[in-house]
Amino acid sequence: MAANTGGLTAVAPSAVERPSAARLAVAANTGARPALAANAAVSVRGLIRGFGPKGVLNGVDLDIAPGEFVALLGPSGCGKSTLLRALAGLDRDVRGSGVIRVPDRVSVVFQDSRLLPWDTVLGNVTLGLREHAETRACRALAEVGLAGREKSWPHQLSGGEQQRVALARSLVREPQLLLADEPFGALDALTRIRMHGLLRDLVTAHRPAVLLVTHDVDEAIALADRIVVLDHGRTATVRPVAPQVGSAADAAGHEALRRDLLTALGVHTSVGTAIESAAGAAEAAARPAAAGAR
């Protein structure tokens, strides 16, 4: 898929609407939606979103198979959160067009744990649950290693614990799709690695399709089955992650993929290999470089 060389220049509001209005007309004629993948959990075609005159997403196409773990990479401000919010149906007031199909049960994990401060940990997990709310919530809390903390207030938990509660809250409703927007962005490197393990276990147990937004190339490689790079409002690069690369058993493959992704993110550097503690550093390197590339 080619990157939009036009870049993020101002798009007139009418232009934002047009392309997929045409698509939709075609779809109506043929009585079918424009080539949505039939058995994908998530299928997105020609997604356009913009704030004011500025286009952010310029025709994103994306499919996620049931149970597939997709990581979404991209420089800061490229529209990752915008895409995720569109999938979560949280962008009613944002201009745009395109076709989105998502499953019935969608859960969202935000960068902030977003726990209701006036509700206990248990209350936060049961939010919106109907049958056997407490039993299920307790089980979910035990799963993230927080059994016994049900009666605590959110402010009594550490940042990592709060994020675990948020994970429990999203998984307790057995989602078919889990949307996570930099869920570990605010955590320290060590806690983050622990959380990777936890998330991998939970996803293996519950098998939702996952879209994980992240800045962190290594996080993406460690967790995802497939990595998508968002560039200039389109899904520019798609890389499958072989299992032995994800688990870092294949060190050379791991390094190659990492460099490939950094290049896709606009970081042209041999420094990439020098940074071993990677996570934070790669992220720090990616941001200014990508911003400068525009």
Binding site: A88, G89, L90, V106, S107, V108, F110, D112, R114, L116, W118, D119, G123, L127, G128, R169, R173
Partner: peptide, 27 residues
């Protein structure tokens, strides 16, 4: 507003939204 978004993502009914988010938040 972030709590309102959260309520939307967990599909709270209007009544639960008032009971679990609005009332305690306005307290």
């Amino acid at each position: 507003l972030r709590y309102v978004e959260l309520a939307q993502t967990v599909r709270l009914s209007r009544a639960s939204f008032i009971r679990r988010v609005v009332l305690p938040g306005a307290l």
